[in-house]
């Protein structure tokens, strides 16, 4: 499933004195199969954008019965496009339930959405909700799906399934919550700050988990993150949001060559990019893709050449 957005704008509290323009004419395409990163400050519009992808925030035209005709003489605004695979999110008759089944969304601190008596029940929640009417999944099917989901997030079914989700450790809770989203095998998985609040090892493990999911389970992974190192190490491509607009849409290798521009936007850059910049000032060019591994290899190669 490909994600295509064109001329997407969104204003919170439209028409009130507290109106805030969160998205301003955003156009962005995310290809199937990508591990896509979305960067930007708090309030840059990145969360608003991703909540559009499964219809939690609706394009205004999809909520109205009749389209407003532009008044004569006024310029016709460019038409908003928002397609996720075969779903047209600007249309009122789109099946948003079917869409949500295909686009999984993991919010920040997802462990705070756990509610059921057992981990098994909690993970099965989405599965039961998304089941078509009249086709209730059997206990056996549910059991199998929950087992698979727990297994892929690295939890032991036998150990945790009958436990209360509130008795798990912090890291386990987050894994269980992610299992509750991916249990329906969505094609696109969107995660808002998946590693927030975890300790360094926990962070690393979550990123490894996302790669596993990307390989085996969900075709496209989209992460929203503040952590530049996380983006440069993991993503195939990323967009930078600032004040409701997309300012860059590039692979990390090209994006982080713009170290100065990113710093001017008040954003951090990965450590590797800082080192590349510092070396550039000293007349040394390191042509790396900004992953730590590649940086180290390229620097060592330089030395080999120099010796």
């Amino acid at each position: 499933m490909r994600i295509v957005a064109e001329h997407l704008s969104y204003t919170y509290n439209e028409g009130s004195p507290f109106a805030v323009r969160a998205l301003d004419d955003v156009s962005l395409t995310i290809e199937e199969g990508e591990f896509y990163g979305i960067l930007g400050h708090t309030g840059s519009g990145k969360s608003t954008f991703v909540q559009h992808l499964n219809g939690l925030i609706r394009v205004p035209s999809s909520l109205k019965k009749r389209k407003k005709k532009p008044k004569k003489g006024q310029p016709v605004p460019p038409e908003t496009v928002l397609n996720v695979g075969e779903f047209d999110l600007t249309k009122r008759d789109t099946n948003f339930r079917a869409l949500r089944k295909k686009v999984g969304m993991v919010f920040q601190y997802p462990e705070y959405q756990l509610f059921a008596e057992t981990v098994k029940e909690d993970v099965a929640f989405g599965l039961k909700n998304f089941a078509e009417k009249g086709e209730k999944p059997s206990e056996e099917e549910i059991g199998r799906a929950v087992r698979d989901a727990l297994q892929i997030v690295g939890l032991d079914y036998g150990e945790v399934a009958e436990k209360s989700p509130f008795d798990l450790s912090g890291g386990q809770k987050r894994r269980a919550a992610i299992a509750g989203v991916i249990v329906t095998k969505p094609e696109i998985l969107v995660l808002d700050e998946p590693a927030a609040g975890l300790d360094p090892l926990g962070k690393r493990e979550i990123m490894e988990l996302l790669h596993t999911l990307h390989r085996e389970w969900c075709k496209t992974v989209v992460i929203v993150s503040h952590d530049m190192d996380e983006i440069s190490e993991n993503c195939t491509r990323c967009a930078v949001f600032a004040e409701g607009k997309v300012v860059y849409d590039l692979p990390p290798k090209e994006l982080f060559q713009k170290g100065e521009e990113l710093t001017a936007l008040g954003l951090d850059i990965p450590l590797t990019a800082k080192l590349v910049l510092a070396l550039k000032e000293r007349g040394i060019t390191v042509d790396c893709d900004f992953t730590t591994e590649d940086f180290i290899q390229k620097v060592l190669a330089l030395k080999g050449g120099g010796a």
């Binding site: 070396l279 000293r282 040394i284 030395k303 050449g305």
Partner: peptide, 10 residues
């Protein structure tokens, strides 16, 4: 660190 790398490779 950049300074030291520069010294090592040149």
């Amino acid at each position: 660190l950049a300074e030291e790398i520069a010294r090592c490779v040149s």
